[in-house]
Write a protein that binds this DNA or RNA. Structure first.
Length: 278
DNA sequence: ATTTTCCCCTGCCGGC
DNA sequence: TGCCGGCAGGGGAAAA
């Protein structure tokens, strides 16, 4: 499940091979990928355009085109982007689209569960909302992500801190893996009301989020389910998880058995001793 | 307005 | 062996 570190890993790899290239072909095998737009409209907006930059906002990838439009992609649960690098690409029955570049290479959007989406945003596409980025919260790996900003995002919230971290309007890019790992590192119980954290806890949580996301990027992401990088390689962050998916295992810090609960419809893992309920 | 629940999808896994 | 229910979850819509 690609979260910020996984998307950032893909962004950095794609940046090297896509920026400056012109898109010569776009084949959409699964129209659901571009819903509600039509494959023909997306193809018309993209083919013949040069890619000028590759950005990221939260878990979204942004492909800037020389037309002024932006292609926005979200991998959701099982989406992958694979760059051919000029080598033969093995058959993939989950391929949803193929982008052809002017150097003869291809970028394939593959997605087993078909939750992934791709949009074209720009002045010529008024049917698609252009304010998506404004709805997202602060970018956690920027200087703007201070304890004060995190505190403001959590103040007065009655929902659990875990649910608040998963809410992309608070902080952008955190998913189930890094929410669990950040709360573990900060020693905060996932069921705590978001608004009940004191200043020390907020500072610890901010530091833990930044640290876990940075380590995640350094490890090339977590390949828990189907995540792979643009060359099909696994990341190694899954080997460094201390609470997430570790139900029944001893806590690596104190030895207490890791517990699994459910928060916001998501499996949630914590250490009852290191992360006290109050 | 905030918070929770449901739903989209497919593959996998345990139970019978 | 094969069928079936349950589970996994990001995010948006709908409901509470």
């Amino acid at each position: 499940m690609p979260e910020l570190p996984e998307v950032e890993t893909v962004r950095r790899q794609l940046e090297d091979v896509v920026v400056g290239r012109t898109i010569t072909r776009l084949t959409i095998h699964d129209p659901l990928l571009v819903t509600p737009a039509s494959p023909a409209a997306v193809r018309a907006a993209v083919v013949g355009r040069r890619v000028t930059a590759l950005g990221r906002r939260g878990k979204y990838l942004q492909l800037a085109l020389d037309s002024g439009d932006t292609v926005v992609a979200h991998l959701r649960m099982t989406g992958r982007l694979h760059h051919s690098g000029g080598r033969p690409v093995p058959p993939d029955r989950h391929r949803r689209a193929r982008i052809g570049l002017d150097d003869g290479t291809t970028v394939d959007f593959s997605d087993t569960r078909r939750f992934g989406r791709l949009w074209v945003l720009g002045p010529d596409h008024p049917d698609i909302r252009d304010d998506w980025s404004a709805k997202l919260g602060v970018e956690p790996l920027t200087p703007q992500f201070t304890p004060e900003v995190l505190g403001d995002a959590l103040r007065g919230r009655a929902t659990t801190i875990k649910a608040a971290l998963l809410d992309q309007r608070r902080v952008a890019g955190i998913g189930n893996i890094y929410a669990d790992e950040s709360l573990f590192q900060a020693g905060i119980h996932p069921h705590r009301p978001a608004g009940s954290l004191d200043a020390d806890e907020i500072r610890a949580l901010r530091d833990a989020i930044v640290d876990r996301l940075q380590v995640g990027i350094a490890q090339g992401g977590a390949s828990i389910d189907r995540y792979r990088d643009t060359l099909g390689r696994r990341g190694t962050m899954q080997d460094m998880l201390r609470a997430h998916l570790h139900e029944g295992d001893p806590c690596p810090v104190c030895g207490t058995t890791i517990v699994k609960t459910r928060v916001a419809q998501r499996g949630t893992y914590h250490c009852p001793s290191c992360q006290p309920a109050s």
